[in-house]
Design a protein around this nucleic acid. Structure first.
Lengths: 202, 202
DNA sequence: CTATTAACGGTACTATGGTTCCGTTAAGAG
DNA sequence: CTCTTAACGGAACCATAGTACCGTTAATAG
């Protein structure tokens, strides 16, 4: 060490934030339209009206950009319902997930970010954090059910919430079976039934 | 039409089949090692000891090659167990899926083919066919349970089998939660419990 | 067996995703 | 306000995935 390092001040204000917002929005659009393997950083730059050098400098890879997009996505949360019964709450959650996974923009976007997560550990980490946030948001409805005596004490709330989403994601990503209201309601009912029977106690 | 078309005879014997086998094996290896976005057809050709021109000519795209790989994968089936009870059979199935999804070669391979399926309709179709085959293979265990009176008549066998796999795939692809025996057994128990309660009747 | 041609494989080429260079803009400190 | 420099943007550049060409090998018909 020869000299005191001058603090490399960062400049997140104004322009930097504006660029990030525009690029992430453009990335989401591009992913929704073209899918994961169709993501071209130059195209994202064009959509965001930003130099492609900027995109490469700040995010370097497609998966890096998607990881950042996931971080941003984790921030805007979905409001939890409170219908007064576990089954009602879980059905509300299932319908919400269904709406996302059948939305013409969201469905391909989710498929794309999940594909990206299979290709890069950092993106996978961001995806896991995203779901951890979403699951934590809905876990309280199971805690309430436990207080009401609907499910046995010691029920793993997160596991119940995951059980609702799982069949819908399985259809979206693996089996390709239709994603409809019947599937959502069945997922919610199955999770509620299993939870009441004590399947998810720790 | 000016002249009679001479029948463009195909030559599936010997060499052609050998090349396909070598290339598909190499593709599986490459996918397992490098993931979907790391798949390079020239690299596959090298591994298969085949000219890269051949690979491009016969499969043209990475997703096309993966679609063919999935078709081959659908052919070798997993034997179904018969333990005498629905829960036992479903647990056997869950353990089998778990073994696949935690295998050091199979897990990344499955992640990769699923990622590929999100990027191309033909690959998605092949993936759906793959799961349709697997699910049909195990559906009889629900039919047997119905005969034994374990589940109500009119239970959707395929839906029960899907319900077993779904939580495991959700962990593999979305939430990132650990894939262990506890998760597999819980998935089987939850599906059996819901099925007995009549959640999956049509 | 021979003749025909489907299918393979090496080499040279092209096109596009990604990098480097360097001048310009504007955030933030004083 | 002025000054410093983090961050941006255009253009030229490079590396590599994918294509085109053409001669060679071997499957199958007769």
């Amino acid at each position: 060490m020869t000299a005191a390092e001058p603090p490399p001040t960062t400049r997140p204000g104004g322009r930097t934030a504006r660029v990030r917002e525009a690029v992430l929005r453009a990335a989401g659009d591009a992913l929704a339209e073209r899918g994961f393997d169709g993501l071209d950083l130059a195209d994202v730059a064009r959509r965001a009206e930003v130099g492609k050098t900027t995109v490469y400098r700040r995010w370097s890879t497609t998966t890096g950009l998607i990881a950042d997009l996931l971080t941003a996505m984790a921030e805007d949360s979905l409001p939890r319902s409170d219908t007064g019964s576990l089954e009602g709450d879980l059905r509300a959650n299932a319908r919400l997930v269904l709406r996302t996974l059948s939305d013409p923009r969201q469905a391909p976007l989710f498929r794309a970010v999940i594909a990206a997560a299979t290709c890069d550990p950092r993106t996978a980490e961001a995806l896991h954090a995203f779901y951890a946030t979403r699951i934590a948001e809905w876990a309280p409805c199971v805690a309430l059910a436990e207080k009401r005596g609907e499910v046995p004490p010691g029920t793993d709330a997160a596991e119940v919430v995951r059980a609702v989403s799982a069949p819908l994601y399985y259809r979206l990503l693996a089996s390709g079976d239709p994603l409809d209201a019947a599937a959502a309601d069945r997922a919610a009912l199955a999770a509620a039934t299993a939870a009441r029977a004590g399947v998810y106690t720790v």
